Computed example of a mutant assay.
Amino acid sequence: MDTIELQMPDENIDREALHEASCSLYRDSMLIPPGRVVAMLATASMLQLDEVIQQCVEVMKETVSAQTVCSYYYSAESYGLLTIRTMCLQWLLDNMMTQCSEGLLREVNLDLMKEVIASSELLVMGVEMDVYTMLKKWMFLQLQPTWRGLLSALFPDTDSWFAKYRRDLEGTPFLETEQGRAFLPVFQQLRLAYIIWDLMSARVIHQDGLTPAAWLCPVYKEHWLGPLQAEQTRKLWPMDVYVSDPQGNSMRCGGQLHSDKQCRWQWEGFNFSWDLVVCYANQHIIFRCSTRNKSRSLGVTLLWHRKVAFCLRLSSLDRDGRAVFRKRTEYLMLSLRKSQELEVMNLEKQDVVFLIYVACNFLYLH
């Protein structure tokens, strides 16, 4: 026969990969470019070439980036590479909110996005509302795969598209429509309790009309009863708490340390109008209860001893988004009185690399 036709069981296998995998039987080593590693992995898995599979694993470990992370993740799932799957998921948790691009948003499928959003390890630089904003852009790109434009135009175009759709639907929440139902499992991972206690964020949620009202009513009820309990009984937490975050109930927020210079920022309005100041100076990170005098609708701010359950995480990433430095605390109970300062992280004698992403998870105790 001049031509032999082979039906491959895997669409990732192509003629070149089959040729290279066959040649590997007669070579001590071979060069696998990152752009060819998925095809080579598929072929080696079919032929049970363990040495080639291991070489693919090493290439993937060294070359994970925004351009390769999704294809590596999906391949690792298909061919049972648990180490690569875990590594790619961690990359997405570190980078999805810090350097997200249009291309990356297009490649992340529904199941993967659900896993990323559900994780308390997601590096949120800002507040929970930023997770919702990112999800809205991601959903737009999934629905409009032909969209092209500058990244700066993505958000206004997303808002315009959903606004037009909302007018056509006459008030039906988008996630309850035929097009929107597929995205329900992903948006159900949003931590709405930490979004709607900010007035502007709550208004955006209602104006967008993406989420069903049935999701919001229980959250508003909890938020109303919580301040009432705080105001009338002064019981914001149990005396003894075994702190963990097994169900993803923590509030995620963050900031950045651009250099080894003194800086500070403030996380506002969580845990019944309490503002927490984060200070960095002389390689120490300090939490301080804010003494700023401002008007609140309920007079619970700074009236008595406050407690916080928190986990602090620091990360530095290289140009490709891979972690070169990590440091974290376990979940800790932190008691703060008015104007009190407490050190929560000491970076002395640490091999610190700036820029540092500072992420914190706060547990809402009541």
Rank of each mutant, 00 (worst) to 15 (best):
L122S: 06
L122E: 09
L123W: 11
V124D: 02
V124W: 13
M125A: 00
G126A: 02
V127G: 13
D130N: 12
V131Y: 13
T133K: 14
M134Y: 11
M134N: 06
K136G: 01
K137T: 02
K137M: 03
K137H: 06
W138P: 03
M139N: 05
F140L: 03
L141K: 15
Q142R: 15
P145D: 08
T146P: 01
R148N: 03
L150G: 12
L151V: 14
L151Y: 13
S152T: 07
S152H: 02
A153P: 03
L154T: 09
D157S: 07
T158C: 10
T158E: 03
T158P: 08
D159Y: 10
W161I: 08
W161E: 01
F162Y: 09
K164Y: 05
R166Y: 08
R166K: 14
E170N: 14
T172A: 10
P173M: 05
L175I: 09
L175A: 06
T177G: 04
Q179N: 15
Q179P: 12
G180P: 08
G180H: 10
A182H: 05
A182I: 02
F183H: 07
F187Y: 12
F187P: 09
F187V: 10
Q188H: 11
L190V: 09
R191A: 02
L192W: 12
A193G: 04
Y194C: 04
I195S: 06
I196F: 00
I196D: 00
W197K: 00
W197I: 00
W197V: 00
D198P: 02
D198C: 08
L199W: 14
L199R: 07
L199T: 11
M200G: 10
S201G: 05
S201F: 04
A202F: 05
A202N: 02
R203G: 11
R203I: 04
I205A: 03
H206D: 04
Q207F: 13
Q207N: 11
D208A: 13
D208N: 09
D208R: 15
T211R: 05
T211A: 04
P212T: 12
P212Q: 03
A213W: 00
A214S: 11
L216Y: 12
P218R: 12
P218W: 06
V219Q: 01
K221P: 01
H223T: 00
W224S: 05
W224R: 07
L225P: 01
P227N: 12
L228W: 12
L228I: 10
Q229I: 08
A230Q: 12
A230E: 14
E231H: 06
E231Q: 08
E231G: 00
T233Y: 15
R234Q: 15
R234A: 11
R234C: 05
K235G: 04
P238A: 07
P238G: 08
M239K: 13
Y242H: 12
Y242A: 09
D245C: 09
D245E: 08
D245N: 15
P246G: 10
N249D: 10
N249Q: 14
